[in-house]
């Protein structure tokens, strides 16, 4: 089995699906000739031609609208939004158009588009590149939202997203692109959307998280186990819409305590939704209130203070101690 980074796993998923289905198209700013600003689409235009892998003019709504129109006509467009912070420019075409197509037409038209975008803190980008805006997408009926935490998942989830017959937003954390490698099968495989993954088993508290925070959670859990002899279960959501509440609830019923960890700001969004759903599904199993460990409710910070703004392992351990002491 090959060992690869997440960006390599993503490139391979795109490559395999372009080869498998000629209806798959790939486009966005700089994705063709240059192979993408992160090289996620490196070599793909050369391999599949500029009719299937192509550069677009620099306009996000135009890109997303192109995807809507092509999706309506039976293609499977993969549209890259160069950085997630630019998604505001394209929100009508995503939330107002593609995600409503099946509903608006009573099932006559569908829009099997995949939007890909890099996001996530810790890499010191300029403003509106790194923001965790997934909560906005999560509140969009008709849209699935996927956030992988490692190379293996990224490949299997992206292939599932491309084969899905409804629109899917696929978010790629920039810090994970090249930070570690993992064994990834060369062939195509799928990981079902909407299924969470228990990445570390434990019995004393459940940490629900996703994206780059999965690693932070696992490290905190390991440190905590060594220093305190207490075990935390870590759940990687993998898909934030729909949420796999079944996996979360069964873990909470076992551990009786939960924290939700996210890079995004505190109010609304994924963590708030998880807390609400745990209350609905497992309230009477809880021995302590559920705690959110998040960034504060400010605009995503200036690069110099990014590391302090994002949840750290120390803050996670403090949170775990707090929940355990209640």
């Amino acid at each position: 089995m090959a060992v690869m980074t997440m960006i390599q796993a993503i490139t391979q998923a795109l490559d395999l699906e372009l080869a498998r289905d000629e209806k798959v198209l790939l486009f966005g700013e700089d994705v063709g000739q240059s192979g993408g600003v992160f090289r996620a689409t490196d070599g793909l235009q050369k391999k599949y031609g500029d009719q299937r892998v192509f550069d677009t003019p620099l306009a996000e709504s135009g890109i997303a609208g192109l995807a809507t129109g092509l999706g309506l006509q039976g293609f499977r467009p993969i549209a890259e939004i160069q950085f997630f912070g630019f998604v505001f420019e394209a929100m009508d075409e995503i939330a107002g158009q593609a995600a409503r197509m099946r509903y608006r037409s009573g099932g006559r038209y569908t829009c099997p588009v995949v939007y890909r975008a890099p996001f996530g803190g810790g890499v010191k980008t300029p403003e509106l590149h790194a923001d965790s805006l997934e909560g906005i997408l999560m509140q969009t009926p008709g849209l699935k939202v996927v956030i992988p935490s490692n190379p293996y998942d990224a490949k299997g989830l992206l292939i599932s997203a491309i084969r899905d017959n409804d629109p899917v937003f696929f978010l790629e954390h920039m810090k994970l692109y090249r930070s570690f490698k993992q064994e990834v099968p060369e062939e195509a495989y799928t990981i079902p959307l909407g299924k969470a993954n228990v990445v570390r088993e434990g019995k004393d508290v459940t940490i629900v998280t996703y994206g780059a925070m999965v690693n932070t959670a696992v490290q905190a859990a390991e440190t905590w186990a060594k220093t305190r002899g207490i075990t935390a279960e870590v759940i990687d959501l993998r898909t934030i819409s729909p949420i796999d509440i079944e996996t979360i609830a069964s873990s909470v019923k076992k551990t009786h305590r939960a924290v939700v960890l996210q890079e995004a700001q505190r109010t609304s969004g994924v963590a708030a939704e998880i807390v609400a759903q745990i209350n609905e599904q497992a309230m009477f199993y809880l021995e302590a209130p559920i705690l959110r460990i998040t960034a504060p409710d400010t605009v995503f910070p200036y690069a110099q203070i990014e590391d302090e703004w994002l949840p750290t392992q120390t803050r996670v351990i403090e949170g775990l101690e707090k929940v355990l002491s209640m």
Binding site: S61, G62, A64, G65, L66, A67, T68, G69, L70, G71, L72, Q73, G74, F75, P77, D92, E93, G96, Q97
Partner: peptide, 13 residues
């Protein structure tokens, strides 16, 4: 919104 979508439909053709 129909203007950007029209370009996509036309590209499909």
């Amino acid at each position: 919104a129909q203007i950007v979508q029209t370009t996509g439909v036309a590209m499909a053709f």
